[in-house]
Design a protein around this nucleic acid. Structure first.
Lengths: 257, 257
DNA sequence: AAGTGGTCTAGACCACTTT
DNA sequence: AAGTGGTCTAGACCACTTC
């Protein structure tokens, strides 16, 4: 009640009205506001964000509260902190940490001479299964991509992607081929859709005719099958990817922690 | 220099002597001290730890500094915080989150009626490959375990384990069978070795005769092969596990975040 | 009522980067 | 020198659990 004896309590009480049910910490609310600004593109991937003091002033809270909000955003890889420089919006473009979404590693060393060959890009209608996983209606427009990734000249990954047609209107084979760097970099810079997290389901399958042809292995060869659903802000599914990995000289690397 | 104008600077300066090179935050040092106490067994898995105020007193730092140290330990799953109750040493025993190390999930629903059948337990000498991954000398004593895990009566996982002989002296088939709950619970309560994190390498392989027999699949069937190295405190490798998973009705679940 | 972790603030100083 | 994030402290109050 008394600003002098409890300046902290004021802000907290004002925002939360001290209601026990539906209580939400101030820093969570600030975090949500910052996330909205990220989503709306007020600060674009790779750009410098306002400083902590600046944000504290804007939201009328202490720097410590802003700090805790940004701490969580950094832990979720939505922003990157650099001491002395500032806080930056995370980006898939320059980010060396695209290892976050590329888990297939050579048995020794690091990926060498990666090369992408686009086999097909077309606009079509979502099959039932795809629609279900992307939370679309069956028959909605989707972009379909099929490509092969090679390392050291060895074809290693055959993958198919489905993207919501509405979000990726101008996506053509040309732009896909032109673009240098990870595909998620293209998605975020050209189509304003940033992949935040993904879930994968991994199985062992036998090589079918297509896999045999593109990965240069005998039909029936055991291969890894990774089915990925990627999400953007607000846990909205925006990519379905089905990858077939040859694990003769590579493995799927995972950390349990 | 002046305690009145900078009470905070005092503790920090005293500990770090304001040396820029080799600078290490106070809370990191506190974290290391607490980790030592965890490792030494001063507080055992499942037990209640001293409160933050108590620890702050012991280490002669502010509660906020202890708090930041414990925050990181909680993020690494070494301890668990419970509001109103206190901070507890994490345990594999009651921990429902043994999903952290069991990534194979049924295609629908959650694991049902799990059942473990121990096929073999023996003490032997480490093969070169095993010794290398466990950071032992080739020929050192190891415990070898082979078992099959079933879900809903369906044999699904065939796995082999190698453990350093020195750490698991009294480990027999009987104790393994008697023990109810996850194996890591047995390891931590009976042998004082707690698994902290692990790395896995996943491949697709063809079922050999053994896999075919124990998992009831035809020879040549594609199966997942997960090679895991687990680490305890101080990043010391203490388990090598090679699992063969049938992915007919299950998949390896992974979160990319 | 007492104790615990959780939130919030204000202020000082440190480490790092740029001007 | 100035600005940024990073550390540390002290103190108040809140939410939750237990007595």
């Amino acid at each position: 009640m008394n600003p002098l004896s409890n300046p902290a309590g004021d802000a907290a009480s004002a925002a939360n009205a001290s209601q026990s049910p539906s209580f939400r910490p101030l820093y969570q609310q600030i975090k949500a506001l910052i996330t909205q600004s990220l989503q709306s593109g007020e600060w674009k991937p790779g750009e410098l964000m306002p400083s902590e003091v600046e944000l504290a002033g804007r939201f009328k809270v202490s720097q410590g509260t802003v700090r805790k909000a940004i701490d969580e955003l950094a832990a979720e890889h939505l922003v990157v902190r650099r001491q002395g420089k500032g806080t930056f919006v995370a980006t898939h473009a320059e980010e060396r940490a695209h290892f976050r979404f590329l888990r297939l590693m050579p048995d020794e060393g690091v990926p060498h001479h990666p090369d992408n060959r686009v086999l097909e890009v077309k606009r079509t209608r979502a099959p039932a299964e795809v629609a279900r996983l992307l939370e679309l209606k069956s028959g909605d427009a989707v972009v379909y991509i099929k490509r092969v990734q090679s390392f050291d000249g060895q074809p290693t990954i055959l993958e198919e992607l489905w993207l919501p047609g509405q979000l990726f209107k101008g996506l053509t084979a040309e732009r896909l081929v032109e673009y240098k760097g990870p595909m998620y970099g293209l998605f975020e810079s050209e189509f304003g859709t940033r992949m935040i997290r993904a879930t994968e389901r991994i199985r062992a399958v036998a090589a079918d005719a297509a896999a045999s042809e593109h990965l240069h292995v005998a039909e029936g060869t055991p291969l890894l099958c990774a089915e990925r659903v990627s999400f953007t802000y607000g846990d909205k599914a925006v990519e379905l990817r089905k990858g077939i990995y040859s694990t003769a000289h590579h493995h799927y690397q995972n950390e349990l922690s």
